[in-house]
């Protein structure tokens, strides 16, 4: 168990003013069996309205609108989380999780990826199997930022042999799903400084267990989960529409530090 402080910062800069800006943000961590959100604050600017909601997978949403003209939009989410409270989370009845066993456009395997999955002889998604898949995916491609985009599919990244955390996760999902094992994409934050991170949860025996193929690491107490879904598209940190023609520059920074002290008193 570790106590982590986190600060998620998202900033858009537009090169021309936009208006009627509607946004949905998916960067609010939720407490579960593995992580407890001890404290949480958020700050969104500019905005005229802000509401909280949930999506179909239970992820927390912040949504709202900014009517007036603006060239900059910022969201900050910070707080404290106790993580590694358990080695997994319990799943719903199998039939209700089975959808995560079906490929999505981003995780549709091609022949090469299918052959890769076959060689791994995945049967059930049991921990030792899932770890073997994670290691194989970790070795199959090398980390290189900028080699892929958010639209890159698992098959494309696999063929290229390069990618970032999203691609590692997608390849692992594609391989497991090719064998019918339900698994889901997780967006979150990792101890240290950087951008947002992504990893994978695998369903086995009524439990979701998390694996980080980018770092070849079974997730325990250094990851804070923000959302899960079928693939990166379900976990989009930000979705928005606005009026106006502008180029938009996105700046994301994430800082997660370990707290030596005790939990802050006021639970959120």
């Amino acid at each position: 168990m570790k106590l982590l402080s986190f600060h998620y910062h998202l900033k858009f800069t537009m090169d021309a003013p936009v208006s009627a800006h509607h946004f949905t943000l998916r960067c609010i961590p939720v407490s579960d069996a593995r992580q407890r959100i001890v404290q949480l604050r958020h700050f969104v600017f500019p905005k005229d309205s802000l509401s909280r909601g949930r999506d179909q997978w239970g992820n927390a949403l912040l949504y709202g609108c900014c009517h007036g003209r603006h060239t900059c939009f910022e969201a900050n989410v910070c707080g404290q989380a106790a993580v590694g409270l358990s080695d997994g989370t319990s799943a719903k009845p199998f039939e209700q999780e089975r959808i995560f066993g079906f490929a999505t456009p981003l995780t549709e395997p091609d022949d090469a990826l299918r052959a890769f999955a076959e060689k791994l002889r995945i049967r059930s998604g049991a921990p030792e199997e899932a770890e073997a898949v994670m290691r194989a995916v970790h070795d199959a491609i090398s980390y290189q930022s900028g080699a892929t985009t958010v639209q890159t599919t698992a098959a494309e990244a696999f063929a290229m042999g390069r990618g970032v955390c999203q691609d590692y996760a997608h390849i692992m999902l594609a391989a497991l799903r090719a064998s019918g094992v339900p698994c889901r994409y997780v967006a979150g934050m990792l101890l240290g400084e950087g951008k947002s991170h992504a990893w994978v949860e695998v369903l086995h025996d009524g439990r979701w267990t998390a694996y980080d193929p980018t770092n070849c690491l079974v997730v325990s107490d250094e990851h804070i989960k923000l959302s899960h879904g079928r693939d990166a598209r379900d976990c989009a940190i930000n979705r928005g529409v606005f009026r106006g023609g502008a180029w938009q520059e996105t700046d994301i920074s994430v800082i997660v530090t370990e707290d030596e002290g005790s939990e802050e008193k006021q639970p959120w």
């Binding site: 509607h22 509401s51 999506d55 949403l61 949504y63």
Partner: peptide, 9 residues
């Protein structure tokens, strides 16, 4: 925009 969030609620 957001009609689905209202509907979900």
């Amino acid at each position: 925009p957001h009609i689905f969030d209202v509907y979900r609620k």
